[in-house]
Design a binder for these strands. Sequence first.
RNA 1: UGGGGUGUCGCCAAGCGGUAAGGCAACGGACUCUGACUCCGUCAUCCGAGGUUCGAAUCCUCGCACCCCAGCCA
Length: 562
Amino acid sequence: MTTTETPLPGKAANFIRNIVTDDLKSGKHKSIVTRFPPEPNGYLHIGHAKSICLNFGLARDFGGRCHLRFDDTNPTKEDIEYEDSIKENVKWLGFDWGEHMYYASSYFEQFYQHALKLIEKGLAYVDSLSADEMRALRGTLNEPGKESPYRSRGVDENLDLFRRMRAGEFEEGSQVLRLKIDMASPNINMRDPVIYRIRKVEHHRTGDAWCIYPMYDYAHCISDSIEGITHSICTLEFEDHRPLYDWVLDMLEAPCHPQQIEFARLNLSYTVMSKRKLLELVQEKLVDGWDDPRMPTLVGIRRRGFTPESIRAFCETIGVGKSDSFIDMSILEDAVREDLNIRAPRAMAVLRPLKLVIEGYPEGEADEFEGANHPNDPAMGTRTVPFSKTVYIERDDFQEEPAKGFFRLAPGREVRLRYAYIIRCESVLKDASGEIVEVRCSYDPGSRGGSAPDGRKIKGTIHWVSAEHAIDAEVRLYDRLFSTPNPGGKNEPDYRTSLNPKSIEVLTGCKMEPSLAASTLDSRYQFERLGYFCLDSKDSCPQAPVFNRTATLRDSWNEQKR
RNA sequence: UGGGGUGUCGCCAAGCGGUAAGGCAACGGACUCUGACUCCGUCAUCCGAGGUUCGAAUCCUCGCACCCCAGCCA
C-alpha cells in the first residue's frame, strides 16, 4: 500500500511526532535531538515518565538522540541525592542517554559571557530595586508595568555592576540582572524579566565558584542551543515563556535555535502529582517514604511491582496532546495487567486462610500435582505442587449460605481444587463465637489432577495450599492512595482529607505454595485468582517473605456484587 | 476587564475540506481446571450559533466553557 504517511506503524500519531516527521521530511533537520531536563530537586514520578518516554521515545523512533540534562540553576533547592535517583529511574525505564549527560551548571561561564554581550548591546541592565519594589512596578494582568528607575543605566555602569555582582560585592537580593524588553507587554514574562540573581550559597556541582545564578528562562534556551537540541519539549505552562525563549536566542544571534513545543502534563486520578504535595506526604509521614508502593513516584511504582515495559506502554496509550487531560488510574493498572499477564508465572497463595480437611483422604499421605506455570504458554513449563489431607482455601471461596450467583464452595456443593481433586463440602466446624474455622469435604478419587472422570462440568475452581507444605508470608494489599478522583480539587479544601484509609492492608500468616520460596526480588507472579505480586524490595527477607500486590485481577464477580 | 492555550464517545486520542481511526471503560455473546486471559459483536456527526462550499470536525464570524501567567522557582 502506501507510503511515508505513517512513518511508524504501531506508534500512535500525535502532534509532536507530526512536527518531527515534517521537519525531517522538509530537510529542516537531518536528525533530531531532544532532551529530558529535570531539576534535581525531587524524585521523578509517573508524570515525568510521560516526558521521558516522549523525549527518549522520539529520539529512538526517529534515529536521533536524547540528552539527559540536569537543570541545576537554583542551588538553594537542589541536591546530588536527587541526581542519582533520577539517573537510576531513567535507566530503569529503559532509556539510555549514552554520552549525552549534561548539566546546566556546566554552562555557567557561557551564560555569563552571553549576559555580558546582552549588556553591551543595551539589552540587559542591573536593577537595584528590591523584590517588593520590582513587584510593585510589574503592573498586573490588566495594567502595564512601569519602568525601573535603573533601567536607563549606561552600558559601562551595567558592566561594572554585573562584574561586581559576580565578584560577590553585593548582598543577596540587592541587585539583579534584567533583560530590557517591554514593561508594557501584555505578556508578563516579557516585562523585563530577571535573568540573574545573587545567591551566596554553595552549588552542589560548582561549589563556591559562583554567587550569581541564572534563571530558568535565560539558562534553558541557551542550554538547548549549546547542545544542538532541535525540539525542546516542555509542558503547557511554559507556553507563555516561548516568546522569551525565542527573544533571548534571537538577540544572542544563536546559530542553533531549537523549537520549543509544549504538551499537556499528565494528571492521574486518585493521586497527586505535585512535588510539593508528594514531599509533604513523605515529610508528614502520611506515607512510608518516596518509595512507598502507593506513591506515584517511579521508585514507588517500581517497588509496587510495575514493570518498565508497562509504564512505557501506558505512556504510549495515553497519547500526547495539548488539552488538559485527566487519565484514570485504571488505565495505568490495566497496563501492568496486560504486561504481567503475559510474563508472570502463576502460583497459588491463600491470603485469608480457611482450613479445609478432606475426609477419606489418607492421613499423613502426600501427593504431588503438576501445575502449569502459564495456562496459555506451555513454554513456561510446569511446577509440582504438593497436596495433603489438610489444605487452606480462601475464606472468600466459601459461603455457608451462598449468595445468588456464587458458584464456589458451599455446603453440599462441589468445587474443584485447582490441579488436584473435585471435592464436596460435607460440613463445617465453628468456634464458640460462631465463626467457621474448618470446612470438611469429601473428594472424588477419580478426579485426581482435577478433571472429572465422568466429564461432569464443575463450574467453580478454587486455589489452595497444602497446610503441611505451606510457607508463611506477609502480604500487603494496596489500593489507591486517595479516595477521590481529584484530591484537593473542588470542594476539597485539603488533599490530605481525601487520603484513602484503606490504601494499605497488611495480611500476615498468608499461606504460599512452596515453589514461591524461590522468589527473587525481580520475580513477578500471578497468584491465581488474586492478582499480581512481587517481593517487597525493602522489607522482605528469605526467612520472612513479604509480598506486595501490584494489581488485582479483573474480577467480574466482585463487580457483580456491587 | 490583558495575554497565552484548549474544547471530537464515560476517560484519553487520530483527523489538516471529501463524507468521524484506535485504546481503555461499558454492554451483549463465545471459550475456560484462574468469575483471569483470549475471541466475537455493539457503542459519537465533532462546545454553541451563524456563514463559505457540491461537500466542513476540518475555512470564516460571533459567542460559551475550562486551563495557565503578576517567583530574585522550574
